[in-house]
Design a protein around this nucleic acid. Structure first.
Length: 745
RNA sequence: GGGCGGUUAGCUCAGCGGUAGAGCACCACAUUGACAUUGUGGUGGUCACUGGUUCGAUCCCAGUACCGCCCACCA
């Protein structure tokens, strides 16, 4: 090494995040940093990336979850594990269909006119474009999964898994067709699951309607309703069997206004004497409670709605084709004019809204495919009870249990085109043949029978539920499946415990006989400044790429890690990111100082042989910081790992140690100078390793830009290097001085 | 109605049985010294409230208030 002090700076004045990021992103990929090696014997470490939807762009929540997963993967890779971070994307059935629908709308094209195959072609086109955007964005967050293994939920292989699972569950009686009320999205014209319905508080009215008894128009009964238009489908009125006011009326008939239909008064405990008027109208085809009452009393079920939510041919002529709101007004007008509108009250109610379409959801009587979730849930519940899968933080397990123990049948069919078409065929008599493909369906049906495939597709979450094993090649018994199932940890937000975690647990237990992952780390949701969930429709998205452009990806990642304390949602402020950016700069300048002092890493450096108390001190502080960091990462206390790195660097290493090295390095004792230079280089080199999982870019840059060059080593990726041992120092001879230093600081 | 979480400095948040912490903001001082994307020092807190356990509680327990979220239901 040159010792004339005239050597030029190798490190630039400041860290240029943008160009550095571009460089390392492509180098990591070229050198296959993320590649899992199924043939190695080292212990696997597996994270299944929650596949982002192919819709739109990544948001701050993605930035958080991806940063944490990347951090974990990098840490465990350096620690010698055979890591697989499995990337991919989800076809997001409803979301994509809604987007393609909207584009068609804007071109004044009806999807029925272009047909299913053209619609699918356009959807794939969207997928290619949007999916490319997302993987680019993922890369720019520093994510280095095993890109060669990228999967899409509608890949041939994954579709194969979906068919296999459907057929097999059907044959086991765990998938069945049933005619019952489902939540119906009137805009997208499809069934959706309970989970896809949001309740939105709206102000409305409670209308009291007076119905006359048949044959005795002087006697009447008042019912209260928030939805008067549904009376066109009423088939009864219920009163509580013990309600003294009404019990004598049970069994009598009412002449329903407008339709003139005769409907019975029934006694049912659903009627709450305290609520409304005490008598409740029963619309079995358009209300979940009324459906049950209708079943108990064998009332007819009259569907009054078309698929688009307008009134159908089961209503009087003048009502047909009206929207629900128009029909409501018309019913009320008529009631007012005819004198049976008793009174009106203000009333707030929860209106069901489809989470994708943001339009009204109607309970709708249709035939749909259901999965027997209660049966599938049982082993999945036991797996968490017995600790085969652990939730972190463990309070999240309660939420899982609560839902799983009260789980309802899962409506898995959707009246969409984009998705996995249901592998069921019907003959002309409506008999159903569930089979892997048309050929085997034909075999089941017999020769010459005309078959038509079910036009519906499966709920997106049906294929996502298989992700932990379908991505590994299942149903083939691949090497990957053997090596990488079950996964180590699933990292996700609490908003999809029900949607996804629960269903992966069910499918994993059923088809693999084992849990899909040993731990579920539930991280915070990133919220906006008011604490509201960020969402496109609210327009409160903070784009992580903007933040990373402004402050650098390392700064963003460090901020997210520092804020990721378990259990709490986090409200992101750019002040914090700015501070992290300053931290990156601090690290950069530290490296420049070390370079200026011409320190270089000596691979034979032995921390135990260091004798100057200051050098012993910093190495022992480094060791204790390192232990903290390792423990914090292993227990998912990312905030503590980030905090320990920050504290060590900014409160100990820079202001104290670095400052003290200034006089030491001008010492006349060459041994002290040599030892101090070596310790500086060693400690900082080690620090770069410890920082790498959180801040991959600046650490790679420093490793290659200074440390490798200074040592004449071939620059290898820092990400491939082994996680260092914590230094062990021999402090026996310096106990007093160490005590003094610690006291001082 | 059921469940979960929160309440700590002006702001965003850590901490957690033994003189209350960070960053930002604010104030003062420093400056071509690795670093102005800086350094040093400072202002600022009945740790929501009320009881209890304890030698000692911001921390544990019980309750109250307010805030947020999830689930269910509302004629």
């Amino acid at each position: 090494m040159a010792s004339n002090g005239a050597r030029e700076y190798m490190l630039s004045k400041s860290f240029d995040a943008k160009s550095s990021e571009a460089k390392w992103i492509s180098l990591w990929e070229a050198d296959k940093l993320g590649a899992a090696d199924v043939s190695t014997s080292s212990l696997p470490y597996v994270i299944m990336m929650p596949p982002p939807n192919v819709t739109g762009t990544l948001h701050m929540g993605h930035a958080l979850t991806m940063s944490l997963q990347d951090l974990l993967t990098r840490f465990h890779r350096m620690a010698g594990r055979n890591t697989l971070w499995q990337p991919g994307m989800d076809h997001a059935g409803i979301a994509v269909q809604a987007i393609v629908d909207a584009k068609l709308d804007s071109e004044n094209i009806r999807k029925e006119d272009i047909g299913r195959s053209e619609f699918l072609r356009r959807s794939w086109e969207w997928k290619e474009k949007s999916g490319g955007t997302i993987t680019r964005q993922l890369r720019s967050l520093g994510a280095a999964p095993d890109w060669a293994r990228e999967r899409f939920t509608m890949d041939a292989g994954l579709s194969e898994a979906v068919k296999k699972v459907f057929v097999s569950l059907y044959e086991e009686g765990l998938i069945y067709k049933d005619k019952r009320l489902v939540n119906w999205d009137t805009k997208l014209e499809t069934a959706i699951s309970d989970l896809e319905v949001e309740q939105k508080e709206t102000s409305g009215h409670l209308w009291h309607l007076r119905y006359s008894l048949d044959g005795d128009p002087k006697k009447s009964l008042v019912v209260a309703t928030t939805r008067p238009e549904t009376m066109l489908g009423d088939t009864g009125v219920a009163v509580h069997p013990n309600d003294e006011r009404f019990k004598h009326l049970i069994g009598q008939m009412i002449r329903l206004p407008i339709t003139g239909r005769l409907i019975p008064i029934v006694g049912d405990e659903h009627a709450d004497p305290e609520k409304g008027s005490g008598a409740v109208k029963i619309t079995p085809a358009h209300d979940f409670n009324d459906f049950e009452v209708g079943r108990r009393h064998d009332l007819p079920m009259i569907n009054i709605l078309n698929r688009d939510g307008t009134l159908n041919e089961n209503t009087p002529k003048e009502y047909r084709g009206l929207s629900v709101n128009e029909a409501r007004k018309a019913v009320l007008d008529q009631a007012h004019n005819e004198g049976w509108l008793e009174r009106v009250e203000e009333h707030t109610l929860q209106q069901p809204i489809g989470d994708r379409s943001k339009t009204v959801v109607e309970p709708y009587l249709t035939e749909q495919w259901f999965a027997d979730a209660a049966t599938l849930a049982k082993p999945a519940i036991r797996a968490v009870e017995s600790g085969k899968t652990k939730f972190v933080p463990d309070t999240q397990a309660k939420i899982y249990f609560e839902w799983m123990r009260n789980i309802q049948p899962w409506c898995i069919s959707r009246q969409l085109w984009w998705g996995h078409q249901i592998p069921a065929w019907y003959d002309e008599d409506g008999n159903v043949y569930v089979a892997h493909d048309e050929k085997s369906a034909q075999e089941k049906a017999g020769p010459g029978v005309r078959l038509e495939q079910d036009p519906d597709v499966l709920d997106t979450w049906f294929s996502s539920a298989l992700w932990p094993f379908s991505t590994l090649g299942w149903p083939e018994q691949t090497e990957e499946l053997k090596a990488y199932y079950p996964g180590s940890v699933l990292v996700t937000g609490h908003d999809i415990i029900f949607f996804w975690v629960a269903r992966m647990m069910m499918m994993g237990m059923h088809f693999m006989g084992d849990v899909p992952f040993r731990e579920v780390y539930i991280h915070a949701l990133v919220r906006d400044e008011t604490g509201a969930k960020m969402s496109k429709s609210k327009g409160n998205i903070i784009d992580p790429l903007d933040v990373s452009d402004q402050f650098g990806t390392d700064a963003l990642r460090f901020t997210l890690a520092a804020m990721a304390s378990p259990g709490n949602d986090l409200k992101l402020s750019t002040d914090r990111v700015e501070d992290s950016r300053n931290f990156v700069t601090k690290i950069w300048n530290t490296a420049k100082y070390i370079e200026l002092k011409q320190c270089s890493i000596d691979s034979s450096f032995d921390p135990g042989g260091v004798s100057h108390p200051l050098n012993i001190w910093i190495l022992s502080e480094l060791a204790s910081a390192q232990v903290k960091i390792e423990k914090a990462i292993e227990t998912y206390y990312f905030n503590e790992a980030a905090g320990a790195l920050y504290h060590f660097t900014w409160d100990l290493f820079c202001p104290w140690y670095l400052e003290f090295t200034k006089p030491l390095l001008s010492s006349e004792h060459e041994a002290i100078v040599t030892e101090t230079k070596a310790t500086l280089a060693f400690a900082f080199g080690q620090l770069i390793h410890l920082l790498h999982p959180i801040m991959p870019f600046v650490t790679e840059e420093l490793w290659a830009g200074y440390f490798c060059k200074a040592n004449g080593e071939a620059p290898g990726l820092l990400g491939f290097r082994p996680w260092p041992e914590a230094p062990v120092v021999n402090s026996a001879d310096a106990t007093e001085e160490l005590g003094f230093i610690r006291e001082l600081i």
